[in-house]
Structure formats: C-alpha cells, structure tokens
Amino acid sequence: MFVRGLPNRARKLLAAVDAAPTERCIGGGIACAPVRLWHWVNAAAILILSLTGYLIGTATPAMSGEATDNFLFGYIRFAHLSAGYVLSIGFLLRIYWALKGNAHAMQIFWVPLWRSCFWREVYQEIRSYAFLTVEPERRVGRNRLAQLAMFFMFTQTITFMVVTGFALYGQGAGTDSWQYKLFSWVFSIWPNSQDVHTWHHLGLWVIVTFALVHIYAVIREDTCRPGASDL
C-alpha cells in the first residue's frame, strides 16, 4: 500500500533494489559521490552530536568565575543544536537522493522483510560472520545484514533522534516556535518531556553501538573481502 503511493520512478527504483541481489550486477555501486559526501558530513555531525549530547546529559565539571565570563554549556548546546541541523538537513537530502539516486541509494530506507530471498541472504551473511562458511559470497550492493542494521539502527534511530531532538529544541525555542508546532506531537506520546530526554539519550547509545559494529565491519570487509565497495 505504501509502494502504491510512491511516484513512478521511486517504484522502479524499489523494484531494482529488490532485484539487485539476484541480478548480482548493477552499475555504479553504492559509493556514488553524493552518498559519499553525505556519509562523511553525517559521520562528522554524529560525532559532534554524540560528544556534545553526552556532555549535555552528564554536564561538565563546574566552571568557576562569574557567569558572564563563561558560556561553556551554552557553546556545547550550540554545537549540539547546530550539528543537529546539519544532520537533519543532510538526512533530508539523503532521503531525496534515495528517490533520485541509483538503486542502492534506497537500500538504507527500504528493507524487503517480506521476501524469503532477503532472509536467505541474511542467513548466509550470518553464517559467514559466524565463520560457518569460509568464503564470503561475493556481492554487489550492500550486504543484507548490514542493510538490516542500517535500517533499524541507523535510519530508524536517526529519524527518532531528529524528531525527538527537534521536539526538545521546540521546548527551548518556545511553544510558539515552528519547531514546537511541528514536533510537539511527541509530547502526546510522552507528556512529561523528561521521558523524551531519556529516550533521546538512549538513542545516543544505539548510534554508538551501530557505529562500532559498522566501522568494524567496514574495516574487516576491506581487509578480508577483496572487491568490497568502499566509501
């Protein structure tokens, strides 16, 4: 039903994404320039967000001196909010690119969970990581396990972080701000925004965990799996 609502081109892309693993070969790979660019901007924003977010959560050691001499916490929050904007705009552009770019561009947004061939490939991937098959399958496009992790741990989490982040932003910007107007529905789910802080904070650790595994997988892929794509 979701598929039906999409524009024609998007539908074609989706079909291509679905088909990709079986067809085995699609020109361009996943490392096209816009995605590359986005990847690194995104990674940098997330690094900043994670560091500053953690500091916001635990707070820095007390500074001494008059309040007017310092703006440390203000800067930390400023960095967080700015990086938040960068991340969010990048994410929007990435969504645009998913519809516009090549078939692989859609992969982190589209996981064909209902297809048995998808799960078969996931299973093979798991066997490979569990050292049950010696030779990893050669593939073009993203490995299905990675796709799964990207979708749930990255795409979903980032969406969540952007939404909750802007809801929290709206609190500071005030109830008349566009951020509040657009995102305050979050507070219907959690009327006490303390919960929004808590879940937003937990999101940090989901992202960190994802990054850990992702970077490991990428490095491993690079060293063990000749021919794997790189960014």
Binding site: A62, M63, A67, L72, G74, I76
Partner: peptide
C-alpha cells in the same frame, strides 16, 4: 546564566 556558563 550559570547553566549556560556551565557553572553547576
């Protein structure tokens, strides 16, 4: 102002 300054 102390919050923004990081004075806790």
């Amino acid at each position: 102002s102390h919050f923004d300054a990081g004075q806790f």
